[in-house]
């Protein structure tokens, strides 16, 4: 009388590939091996015949001992228990599980698109992914920068599909990556820009600067603003200092930061007095004063 040589090994396979379940039978003789799908109670194959009209199903054997059920172009709906049956009296059967895994995929909706928010408000970044097993979501900053947390601490990654930032500030501005992974390659990610708007702010290191007549002098201001600001220098009565001649304003900007320099090639008697550096954007404007005084020779 035939008997099973070993249990059916469970199989894990990614979608669209071919899965093979193996049933080992000793001393089959004239008995027949059949494969069935347990959850739907469907007859698949008997001996070397495919009974079902599912064209993705195949059957083969080696030496009438190992009987292989082949499922081509595997789908998620193929996941489940499969039975190998021998028509002894009483009937013998054993089952094996086919696990179908799916690589992660990030959904356009409800995953966040690029975000534009005012500084000080709260913001939520969302990332939704499908896949099997259910993917886990990790947030990182592009370039590996750290993420400031509200309590003054920093971290390099945040877990979970919802990433809340309370009282967002300019240090949060930049590109974030939502990374979805479930152990089935490839892992996928989506880049989400977080743009933080705030009115200009000016910071001056030296507000009182002394110079000899004829000396070359440079005044410096630092401004921060987003959207990017317009920056310029004025004299006491508000007249704008144009480029050229003896004045040379230089702007060095980096993201939302601007470093303003005004170089006076040769300080003359009329150059002493107050200067203003001005920064303006759509959310407001601000200025800062620098006083240039004369140092007697």
């Amino acid at each position: 009388v035939p008997k099973f040589g070993q249990p059916i090994n469970n199989v894990t396979i990614p979608v669209a590939r071919e899965a093979t379940l193996a049933c080992v039978v000793e001393d089959l003789a004239t008995y027949k091996v059949a494969w069935l799908r347990v959850d739907t109670q469907t007859i698949l194959t008997i001996a070397t015949h495919v009974i079902t009209k599912n064209h993705r199903i195949g059957v083969s054997h080696s030496d009438h001992r190992t009987w292989y059920l082949q499922i081509r172009d595997v789908r998620e709906s193929d996941r489940g228990w499969y039975m190998c049956q021998i028509n002894t009296d009483p009937m013998k059967s054993q089952v094996g599980y086919l696990e179908v895994v799916v690589p992660p995929d990030i959904l356009d909706y409800p995953t966040s698109t690029d975000m534009v928010v005012r500084e000080g408000t709260n913001v939520t970044l969302r990332c939704a992914a499908t896949g099997s097993p259910q993917p886990s979501i990790t947030w990182r900053r592009e370039g590996g920068e750290s993420i400031p947390l509200g309590n003054g601490q920093e971290t390099t990654s945040v877990e979970g599909p919802v990433f809340n930032i309370t009282r967002v500030n300019r240090l949060h501005m930049g590109a974030y990556l939502c990374i979805a992974s479930n152990g089935v390659p490839p892992t996928v990610s989506k880049r989400i820009m977080l743009i933080v708007h705030f009115p200009p702010m000016i910071w001056i290191q030296n507000q009182l600067v002394g110079a000899h007549e004829g000396q070359q002098m440079t005044l410096e201001c630092n401004s921060e603003a987003y959207p990017k600001s317009i920056n310029y220098w004025t004299r006491e009565k508000g007249e704008i200092i144009a480029q050229g001649g003896k004045y040379e304003p230089v702007l060095l900007d980096n993201a939302y930061k601007v470093h303003m320099k005004l170089t006076i090639r040769s300080v003359g008697p009329t150059d002493f007095g107050s200067y203003k550096c001005v920064s303006k954007n759509s959310l407001g404007d601000t200025d800062g004063s620098i006083k240039l005084y004369r140092i007697p020779q």
């Binding site: 008995y31 059949a34 008997i46 039975m83 049956q85 028509n87 009296d89 009483p90 059967s93």
Partner: peptide, 19 residues
């Protein structure tokens, strides 16, 4: 088929079970 134990009985005019 017998639903209790998924035993295949007949297929077409052929008998699979040995009962």
């Amino acid at each position: 088929i017998r639903k209790r134990d998924l035993h295949i009985l007949t297929v077409g005019i052929l008998t699979y079970t040995n009962d």
